[in-house]
């Protein structure tokens, strides 16, 4: 089914349809991740792929047009290249380890330690969170910095111009609430989305969740607000300077935690020394850096969305 959707995406010429199908495709792949036991990943994919990235692509289509023009080149050459590459890869898989075998190479090195020791050493049940935030803390910090850099890049390419234009639906009398049904529904939903985001943020140690997912869910609440009430109101709610400051602050919290553990005489991002008991220290450390991750991810997503929409409105 996933392959069918992917091929439909390739064939379709209407870009609007492509983007919509791509959202469905992301949701389907999230289902596959659930089946494969990767609940945290499925969570992220559903929030990011089916939610935020679809909105980003739609915002792009507003300013770039909805139809794809037929290519002047014959599709046969690329098709041939693809078939040959695919055949070579299939041939390569014949030597690959079989699906689901516990003796596969990936399961025999560090994974054993994560599964066996991490519940007692780090003290939290969700192994994904403990690997993400503690054992591979450097790696995750790099990812957060990449996301922050993406925001810097987007903001240097597109400027946010939310406060320049007069709010449209306030100036005209009878049309003062252009989409009343949508706005009332959004008002009902947004508080629950925000509460859910906070739950995912702080419960990530015990169940599926964590800073990445919570950040995206939080951002999607603000994006929903911006979609139904207009960009100006949303920028009034979350000003641009706040986005810049908070996105940097999230990275600073993460990096600062590492510096604090260094000042206390341990290695960078070693949380054992943050409290009297190493397990408690690990717990505090993970909570703090997940907070940093959540803040950065949420503000970066909101910032990118604002930049896209103000560009799209400006091009009309």
């Amino acid at each position: 089914m996933l392959s069918m959707t992917a091929i439909a995406v390739v064939r379709l010429r209407s870009l609007f349809g492509v983007v919509m199908l791509f959202g469905i495709y992301s949701l389907l792949s999230a289902l596959i991740f659930v089946v494969l036991d990767a609940i945290d990943v499925a969570f992220t994919e559903a929030a990011v792929g089916a939610g935020v990235s679809t909105v980003f692509m739609l915002a792009t289509l507003v300013s770039t047009g909805r139809e794809e023009k037929p290519s002047r080149y014959s599709p046969l050459l690329p098709l041939g290249v693809v078939v040959v590459t695919g055949a070579a890869l299939v041939w390569g898989t014949l030597d690959m380890p079989h699906f689901g075998d516990p003796g596969n190479p990936v399961h025999v090195h560090v994974a054993d330690r994560y599964v066996q020791v991490s519940p007692t050493e780090v003290g939290i049940p969700n192994m994904v969170t403990s690997v993400l935030a503690s054992y591979r803390g450097y790696d995750t910090m790099g990812e957060v910095i990449v996301i922050f850099t993406a925001l810097v890049g987007v903001l240097s390419l597109l400027t946010i111009r939310g406060h320049v234009t007069v709010p449209r639906h306030r100036t005209t009398g009878p049309d003062s609430r252009p989409y009343p049904v949508l706005q009332v529904m959004a008002m009902l939903l947004i508080p629950f989305i925000l509460v859910f985001a906070l739950y995912v943020q702080f419960h990530g140690d015990f169940g599926p969740g964590g800073g990445f997912q919570a950040g995206v869910i939080f951002a999607s609440a603000i994006i929903l607000y911006a979609l139904t009430f207009g960009l100006n109101d949303a920028v009034a709610l979350v000003p641009v300077w706040l986005i810049r400051v908070l996105a940097a602050a999230g990275v600073l919290i993460y990096g600062g935690t590492g510096v604090v553990s260094m000042l206390r005489g341990a290695n960078y991002l070693d949380y054992d020394v943050l409290a009297h008991d190493p397990v408690h220290g690990q717990h505090y450390g993970i909570l703090i850096i997940e907070l940093g991750v959540g803040i950065t991810v949420a503000t970066v997503m909101i910032g990118i969305f604002f930049a896209f929409v103000s560009r799209a409105e400006g091009s009309r």
Binding site: V48, S53, L132, D139, E143, V146, A150, G153, F212, G215
Partner: peptide, 14 residues
Amino acid sequence: ILTAIVVGVATTAL
């Protein structure tokens, strides 16, 4: 992959 997905959407946006 969890981090890769979020990084992926950021680079897509760029």
